[in-house]
């Protein structure tokens, strides 16, 4: 009887050891920080405050998003080190172009999957303080990811959500985006003048008025003589529309890309049409409803615009 009890105890202690070992492994993985890759490789000393330097998608269906964007833009995908299954980095010709993050939509809630732009700052906490002093709200508190840098997500005074990032590896150089890369951003708000002034306070933008055919105020935000984004009044009956940012991928043929987006399960939100610069622009949504723009930019302009 004593021998039997002793053996049982021995087995139990071995079992406990195994459970402990397993629990330690699980806890280590669970507690590991989110290892995001650097923005620029090799690291540079360039900084371009006010420039949208990174764009990330929040989606409930990472696998579906990969299939859609791979088919549309030829992006390939790389998981994060450590095997996190809910984040992927999109690559074009081996260069990182975007991040894709999978998040479950809270049960019973209607939420908008979206592409979020990260605007460059030198000091996230200082930028956050200025933003809060001018009517912004914090969506995600500042957090440091060793390789990427420090970032935070804020809502501007009208509620449009944007992220700020102080990149550890420097900011991407100011070169014209190629097809399949992010080329432009637009902000759609109730009052472009007031909201542009808010962003000007944080990022030091020059605000440039542009003529418009709808008789409303449209402005372009610039830093270092580069156009960074437009600020536009929400069209139509804007009381039912939410202020938001939109990001645009450069394409060779906006109509063709929009048709391809539909064939891949997306839908067209704004039909391709000639925009201010003379090229076509279309707004489409991916299969989960995340909107983004398709913008043509001619090779003539490319030569003219390249630094």
């Amino acid at each position: 009887m004593t021998i039997c009890c002793h053996r049982a105890g021995h087995l139990l202690s071995h079992g406990l050891c195994a459970v402990l070992l397993y629990a330690t492994c699980v806890a280590t993985v669970m507690a590991a920080p989110f290892e995001l890759p650097p923005l620029v490789t090799p690291a540079s000393a360039e900084h371009h405050v006010g420039k949208v330097i990174w764009v990330e998608l929040v989606t409930p269906d990472l696998a579906g998003a990969k299939a859609f964007y791979s088919g549309l833009f030829g992006w390939t995908f790389q998981g994060l080190q450590g095997g996190k299954a809910d984040f992927a980095v999109a690559l074009l010709d081996g260069r990182p172009v975007a991040g894709l993050l999978q998040r479950a939509v809270p049960a019973g809630e209607q939420r908008q999957p979206a592409w979020r732009g990260f605007i460059a700052v030198r000091d996230v906490d200082a930028a956050k303080a200025i933003a809060l002093a001018h009517g912004a709200k914090v969506v995600f508190e500042p957090k440091t990811y060793p390789q990427r840098g420090r970032q935070a997500v804020l809502a501007d005074p009208e509620g449009a959500i944007f992220a700020i990032l102080a990149s550890t590896s420097g900011d991407p150089a100011d070169v014209l985006a190629g097809p399949g890369e992010w080329i432009w951003s637009s902000l759609h708000v109730q009052n472009p003048d007031t909201d542009a002034a808010f962003y000007q306070t944080i990022f030091g933008y020059k605000v440039f008025d542009v003529p418009s055919e709808d008789g409303k105020k449209h402005v372009i935000l610039l830093t270092e003589d580069y156009a960074r984004a437009s600020v536009n009044p929400l069209p139509g009956d804007s009381s039912h529309r939410l202020p938001h940012w939109l990001n645009y991928v450069r394409v060779v043929d906006a109509a063709g890309a929009a048709a391809k987006a539909v064939a891949l399960g997306g839908r067209v939100l704004v039909e391709p049409h000639v925009d201010r610069h003379g090229g076509n622009v279309a707004i489409v949504a991916d299969p989960t409803g995340a909107p983004f723009g398709l913008m043509e930019w001619s090779e003539t302009d490319t030569k003219k615009e390249s630094k």
Partner: peptide, 16 residues
Amino acid sequence: GSGYHVAPARGMRLGR
């Protein structure tokens, strides 16, 4: 509408 424009003005420099 057709007059609702979001793009940069022609001739502006873009850096992304």
